[in-house]
Amino acid sequence: MTFLLRRALFYLVTLWAAITVNFLLPRLLPGDPVQAMITKLGGRLNSDAMASLYVLFGLDDNKSIWEQYVDYWGSLFRGDLGLSFTFFPTPVADVLAQSMPWTLGLVGVTTVIAFLLGTLLGVYAGWKRGSWMDNLIPVTTFLSSIPYFWLGLIAISLFSVTWPLFPASGGYAPGLVPEFSGEFIGSVLEHAVLPGVTIVVSSVAGWILGMRNMMVTVTAEDYVLVARAKGLTQKRIMFAYAARNAVLPSISGFALSLGFIVGGALLVEMVFSYPGLGYVLFQGIGGKDYPLMQGVFLVITLAVLVANLLADIGYLLLDPRTRKEG
């Protein structure tokens, strides 16, 4: 238990550091967002409006950096991340809340699918090495070596232009209202097929390869020989003795990849104009939308931390050697 407490403390300190860096970064950059906004609006602002914008973004010069820092924390705790320029005057928190489910739903689910599928295939490929399963690896590795945006574009050109089977962009058919109805959910699933399949195709090879190689290593261990000598069933030996040990390195890799769901969604969502966080970040960067970028970075930081915590807990559950007895 002390172990978990110590980990929790570690995560809190990391979180504080990450948020502080997040606070400092835009303030260290040359220029300021209000200037960017003024340029964007083409000088159609009077000085009063400019001054109120500075107040609105918390950039009024009267305040010291320390006061700004305290205010920043205060507004963080209220869930106030400022206003987005790109989607002005929508608060950043609302923009994030709107786009987050899309990213989690698409990239999150496909990351889990790719991990489960790849690991399972890797278990079999490693257990029956030298069989036809080994031919799978060059194929999947080839697919994963194609740059993602290229793979995405090929998928679009083949499956929504040449054969118009699936829509090329968006999260749901235009004109539908997001609600819990069969029509809407069907449309969401239909729109998720191309981005989802391309994500799985491009990431499954890593899981297969990692798991297969660990299986090959673990199969040579004494305890697998003992399990065979014990006359256990092939299934039991393969899963409880070989795969159970071989999966440990993949678990930490998986948790890390969960942390990169949010950040990694950028390319996918750009290619498919998917209404998730990555697309929002892309638009934010284009519009020099500092509050929005800060908000997305905060979410990415939190996601990485949560993923690490999950990895720690997963390891505690799966590997008794990492448990410290009190």
């Binding site: 004494d222 305890y223 003992v226 399990a227 000598a229 040990n245 590997d319």
Partner: peptide, 16 residues
Amino acid sequence: AIVFQGAMNALNPVIS
């Protein structure tokens, strides 16, 4: 039955 070098790695480290 076979008694392996249990002191080394003959027992599965992740199950009791």
